[in-house]
């Protein structure tokens, strides 16, 4: 796969460089991009003193702590995007050795699973998490044994929580959920892939290859939530959306919406890479200004392969696809190969 994933090779290609805007691409506004609904809704409930975490399909991470109110049932509220698939994990005695990490499985509307999406505000009621202040392996509240076979702090089975018929959420079973690859409703974040008794989140080398995950080249998911960094809207799980700082590319689509520009722009990808991210010396076109793309599509002679492509698109098509491309995040590395021209083809 010589050219696959190759970094740019300025030295090798003296020729082709002039922003071979190959598959036809150009400008406009970025008003009609496909994004998730911006709406959020609240998940609320009570717990016995707890960190509440949500891992979501676009890589975003949300968390909150319950409020100490002097009773045994501490209330919490967590805002989550409407329609976005998420998984919940709750931890009692969070910072202590005897913390108990419990993945939550929801039962609603005849479906059972850890993957759910909100339609509206959801009240979970009291979630009967295990808590073990004295570290004796027995739940202080129920008196039941806490089963954690490998001692990584994560209880073996998710806690099933029945919500009956409830229009506030959709529970889904996916056969291939990136957040939970093995489908056991324990998110990958809290699995123990290398069986060393330390869950992935707390394991700084979770493939046991001797290289810390933070500097491991085979690690494409630095926050370990199952969402590849390239698709992760919060790739460090710091709770803040990377998109707002402009550093993350795009979002998996949950609620299907279409724009004319997206399909047209996808026809640039054969030569300029998926979503305009080139893997070769040819130009990346993601995130260029719409005006720049329109100009590039119109400026080549038809003796140049980009010019020969460019004449196949109407001005309005060029504007639609340019609007879409300009809405995508650009490559982190520069694609400044626009200076040289290829005059002999």
């Amino acid at each position: 796969m010589t050219n696959l994933n190759a970094r740019k090779w300025p030295a090798i290609l003296t020729v082709s460089s002039l922003g071979l805007l190959l598959a036809a691409c150009g400008g406009g506004s970025s008003s009609d991009i496909t994004t998730l609904s911006a709406d959020t809704a609240t998940v609320s409930g009570t717990v016995p003193g707890t960190l509440i975490e949500a891992f979501c399909a676009d890589g975003r991470y949300f968390s909150t702590h319950s409020e100490q109110n002097g009773t045994a049932e501490h209330p919490f509220e967590l805002e989550l995007p409407v329609g976005l698939a998420c998984r919940l994990v709750m931890t009692t005695n969070e910072r202590a050795q005897n913390r108990i990490i419990t993945a939550i499985q929801l039962q609603a509307n005849g479906e059972t699973g850890g993957n759910f999406a909100l339609n509206s505000a959801l009240n979970l009621g009291y979630v009967p998490l295990a808590k073990d202040d004295d570290g004796d392996g027995v739940d202080d509240i129920s008196g039941q044994n806490v089963i954690d076979s490998n001692g990584d702090g994560v209880v073996d089975d998710p806690l099933a929580h029945d919500l009956g018929n409830n229009t506030a959420l959709m529970v889904r079973q996916l056969s291939n959920d990136p957040l939970d690859t093995d489908g056991d409703d324990i998110p990958d974040y809290y699995e123990d892939d290398d069986h060393d008794g330390v869950n992935n989140h707390e394991d700084d080398d979770d493939d046991n290859d001797g290289t810390p995950d933070s500097s491991d080249e085979d690690n494409h998911d630095h926050d370990g939530d199952g969402i590849d960094d390239d698709y992760d809207r919060d790739s460090d799980n710091d709770g803040s959306d990377d998109n707002s700082s402009g550093s993350s590319p795009y979002t998996p689509v949950e609620n299907y919406a279409v724009t004319r520009g997206r399909l047209l722009a996808s026809q640039c990808a054969q030569c300029h890479g998926t979503n305009g991210h080139s893997t070769t010396s040819w130009d990346s076109i993601a995130g260029e200004s719409a005006g720049e793309i329109v100009e590039e599509m119109n400026e080549y002679p038809t003796s140049h392969i980009m010019g020969a492509q460019g004449i196949g698109y109407t001005q309005s098509e060029i504007e639609d696809l340019a609007a879409y491309l300009s809405s995508l995040a650009s490559d982190s590395e520069s694609d400044g190969y626009d200076e040289e021209d290829e005059s002999d083809d």
């Binding site: 796969m1 050219n3 090798i12 070769t280 038809t302």
Partner: peptide, 30 residues
Amino acid sequence: ASYPYASGPSSSNYSAMFSWAGNLFSDTFA
């Protein structure tokens, strides 16, 4: 558009060929 357009052979096209194929491969398989 009066297709097809064809060009003559050149060494610059030979280099460009790998940039074309590399992105086509990655758009398909990566």
